[in-house]
Design a protein around this nucleic acid. Structure first.
Length: 720
DNA sequence: GCAAGGTC
């Protein structure tokens, strides 16, 4: 009897590769009903029985974590409740109908083999897949019929070995991901909602539709602000260098480098100057030559691609990933999300070189094949995907950013299998009195990989071949130059990526998102040279957190959470113990933040225009201190944001609003109370305070007098 | 509307 085995990978491309390898290329493929995934079928044996294999995939996580709908009303939910309220799993991408798709494909299957990526996220997706298929498999999805393939690379040998050594999915690793999701959700949303509401409509020039906080984005912003602070706090220090010029044999004038480089004490510098002023010439005491080399790069992974795109091509990380995805889906480059910088042992360099034969790299790839492929640098195999390499030549269809990224990927690939760049450095040592000066010249012996990575070329300096050892050369001029130390420049995107990688903030796939976030939320702007300059808002926030609780912005915050989560993954602590401990810790931090938030207010007051100077109507009831909202066109209608009931205020014959309106909300335990200014005629634009509903006549607002008789007891809920 | 992590 033939059994049916369902095998599930993390992405469509992997399902295809695995099926091709295990079926030795004999497979039938069809598109799945969700349009994104495919099913690849073949026959073989499984557990000693003849078997039909169906290989398909998810597209990353099937589910994501969120709050139940009733907790998504920012006006009705106290953010502190987000630390303890219920959470629920929702389909990560409803368009893909992934749950339905997997359960449909699982119908009639006897066994499940999980081929998800071999990291904690992959382990978590294993259990998401099990959830999806357990009701439609022949005998459910108990651990007797569920297996996990553990592979360290997507290569023939590894995949076949994994199939022969199936294990079970790791529940603890999956639970550690559940814990991360819960922590990130509760902490991020609680802080974000609270501070958004707190700062909203309080300052004249603050655009505050969303003031977010997150365990990755906030430390990311903090790096940018830290550099800003270093620049602002920098005090330039004067220093002195001894500038000495000599006459060369060929009659030119040349500047020598002083071996003491620079001196920070003027008197000391003057002592050295006085030693030289007595000399009319320097003596060339030695000429030494040494071969030097510039090493070629290791194979390309995602983070390095992002760095180069930003620093050399001026393409931001999010845009770079989008371009790389396009190049990948159109067959120009290999899978662009990988941490691996080592080529698999089976990598066919000749095949790739032949693919490039008819394009602009024809000559160089031909030459590499003739000269022999040089062994690439060792790099690191993270077991995900091979490094990013070109897959075919540019047939002339690429242009703009696509062409530039493709061009870089190709040059990087070629460079990894070329020779290092070798050059000769000649050092000329001159002495005069006690002082030593040098000159250096470089001469390229073999350009090696810099023939394709032209921006890395060694600059050949002027040749000093007419200098003779032992000869003396006239000093033309010797003087002290006063200079000042200068502050560092703003952080570049590429430096930020390096810092994030070093501190484990975000992943190769999420780093671009975090950087995009801090820009979209108006915390930084991207300036020339893709330098990240923090805005007033970004600076005030980070300085504020630093005043209240510096741990909130520590670069190590993320990795410390990871350390806690790893206790779950390694089985040393229970999921519930770690989660409740970490949540309680952040709940305390949150409460402390709320108690001390006025410290940030003080910074905002320094950075932004006050209400009074803004020229916009604001509430003067004495408690709200916020802008009033302007209601256009239908001023006489109000509605309750809790139960959505609308209320039309009665108007007199002359169109003026005379009466107080009252609304008893059946869904909430307090009543909304409205009143209109007596006798005030409502114009088309009419303002009210979203916190206490204070709504003086518009005419009065324009005069700036406001209304001072607000008595509303709750000052809590907003109205539209 | 909010986080961060997968992936299309």
């Amino acid at each position: 009897m033939t059994v049916t085995v369902l095998m599930v990978a993390e992405k469509p491309i992997l399902a295809e590769s695995i099926a091709k390898i295990l079926s030795n290329g004999k497979l039938q493929s069809r598109k799945g009903f969700n349009g994104a995934c495919s099913v690849h079928e073949y026959s073989d044996n499984f557990l000693g029985k003849p078997a039909r294999f169906k290989v398909t995939s998810t597209c990353g996580h099937v589910f994501g974590l969120d709050f139940p709908p009733k907790y998504n009303n920012w006006d009705r939910v106290d953010p502190v409740d987000l630390f303890s309220c219920a959470t629920e799993k929702k389909e990560a991408n409803p368009k893909l109908k992934m749950e339905k798709y997997l359960s449909t494909e699982a119908k009639g299957c006897d066994y499940l083999v999980l081929w998800l990526d071999c990291d904690k996220e992959g382990e978590n997706i294993c259990f998401e897949v099990i959830d999806c298929v357990q009701n439609s498999m022949n005998r459910g999805a108990s651990m007797d019929v569920v297996f996990r393939a553990h592979f360290s690379a997507i290569a023939d040998k590894e995949i076949k070995a994994a199939m022969k050594n199936l294990i079970k999915p790791n529940l603890n690793e999956s639970l550690s991901v559940d814990a991360r999701q819960e922590l990130d959700l509760r902490v991020g949303c609680a802080f974000t909602r609270y501070q958004t509401r707190y700062f909203q409509d309080k300052y004249g020039d603050l655009d505050s539709t969303c003031i977010s906080f997150g365990p990755c984005q906030t430390p990311t912003l903090s790096f940018c602000v830290k550099r800003h602070d270093q620049i602002v706090e920098f005090t330039p220090e004067p220093y002195w260098i001894l500038q000495t010029t000599i006459d060369t044999p060929s009659g030119k004038t040349i500047k020598l480098d002083w071996s003491r480089e620079r001196i920070f004490d003027r008197d000391v510098a003057n002592v050295f100057l006085s030693r030289i002023t007595g000399c009319s010439a320097v003596k060339l005491t030695s000429i030494t030559s040494k071969e030097s080399r510039k090493e070629k790069p290791t194979a390309l992974n995602t983070v390095e691609l992002l760095r180069v795109c930003s620093s050399s091509l001026g393409i931001g990380p999010a845009q770079a990933m989008q371009v790389a995805e396009h190049l990948y889906t159109h067959g120009y480059i290999s899978y662009p999300r990988t941490e691996t910088t080592a080529y698999p042992s089976s990598f066919d360099f000749n095949f790739v070189l032949k693919q490039l034969k008819n394009g602009q790299f024809d000559t160089v790839s031909q030459q590499i094949m003739n000269d022999g492929i040089q062994k690439p640098k060792s790099g690191e195999d993270k077991g995900d995907h091979p490094p990013i390499t070109p897959m075919k030549e540019n047939s002339g269809h690429l242009s703009g950013d696509q062409l530039r990224v493709y061009d870089y990927v190709t040059r990087h690939f070629l460079a990894t299998i070329m020779k290092p760049c070798k050059y000769m450095v000649s050092t000329f040592k001159f002495t005069a009195s006690t002082e030593v000066f040098t000159l250096q010249s470089r001469k390229v012996i073999d350009p090696g990989f810099t023939a394709v990575m032209t921006w890395q070329q060694v600059n050949e300096d002027e040749s000093f071949s007419d200098f003779k050892e032992g000869a003396e050369y006239n000093i033309q001029k010797s003087q002290l130059d006063e200079r000042k130390t200068s502050p560092p420049d703003y952080l570049t995107e590429s430096e930020l990526i390096t810092l994030m990688e070093r501190y484990g903030i975000g992943t190769d796939a999420s780093i671009p998102v975090h950087i995009q976030n801090i820009s979209a939320r108006n915390y930084v702007t991207v300036e020339s040279g893709r330098r990240l300059i923090p805005t007033k808002l970004g600076i005030a926030l980070i300085h504020g957190y630093r005043k209240i609780d510096p741990e909130l912005i520590l670069p190590t915050m993320r990795s410390e959470i990871e350390t806690l989560l790893n206790l779950i993954a390694s089985g040393k602590q229970k999921h519930s113990t770690v989660t409740s401990h970490a949540l309680e810790m952040f709940r305390q931090k949150f409460k402390f933040f709320v108690l001390n938030v006025a410290k940030i207010d003080a910074l905002f007051e320094d950075s932004f225009t006050s209400l009074a100077d803004s020229g916009k109507p604001f509430c003067r009831c004495g408690k709200c201190k916020r802008f009033m909202k302007l209601v256009q066109a239908r001023p006489q209608r109000l509605y309750c944001p809790t139960c959505q009931e609308t209320l039309t205020l009665p108007t007199g014959k002359d169109g003026s609003v005379r009466l107080h309106g009252e609304h008893k909300c059946p869904l909430d335990n307090f009543d909304l109370l409205y009143w209109a200014a007596s006798g005030g005629k409502l114009s088309d634009s009419w303002s009210f305070c979203p916190f206490c509903y204070n709504n003086p006549p518009f005419e009065d607002m324009k005069k700036g007098s406001g209304c001072n008789n607000c008595t509303h007891p709750t000052c809590k809920h907003g109205m539209m």
